[in-house]
């Protein structure tokens, strides 16, 4: 049982400005990167293959194929470094963890698109 004080502390960290997205959705994560003394926004676009829903400690994993190599990146959902998340398309998937995409390549590794959910 988590202490109510810790619960309140975690609740204060949760961001409410991000869109609702699910596994299978293709998202564009605008992530702030610090280079020297400058900050710029890096875009990481790919399919959400995992959402770890744990309140303030939530994370999500995005997978993309870059020059033939699969790249997966995990983001803390409530991180102040995430400037925004845009949803490029909604995907139709039948499970919550899309690790099977790792074994697939090319056309087979696509996620079916839904126009309206």
């Amino acid at each position: 049982m988590k202490s109510p004080v810790v619960q309140a502390l975690e609740a204060s960290l949760i961001r409410s400005d991000l869109p609702v997205f699910r596994c299978g959705d293709t998202v564009k994560v605008n992530y702030k990167v610090v280079e020297g003394d400058k900050t710029r926004v890096q875009v990481f676009q790919g399919v959400v293959i995992k959402r770890h829903r744990a309140g303030a400690r939530s994370t999500f994993t995005v997978r993309k194929v870059s020059f033939g190599t699969g790249v997966e990146r995990m983001f803390p959902l409530n991180s102040p470094r995430i400037e925004s998340i845009e949803i490029a398309s909604r995907g139709l998937v039948r499970r919550s963890r899309l690790f099977y995409l790792r074994q697939l390549s090319g056309k087979a590794a696509r996620v079916r698109d839904v126009k309206d959910r």
């Binding site: 810790v6 702030k32 400690r57 102040p80």
Partner: peptide, 12 residues
């Protein structure tokens, strides 16, 4: 001791 959690620093 109340418990453990995680927080974000100013730089994320």
């Amino acid at each position: 001791k109340l418990g453990a959690t995680q927080i974000f620093l100013d730089d994320g």
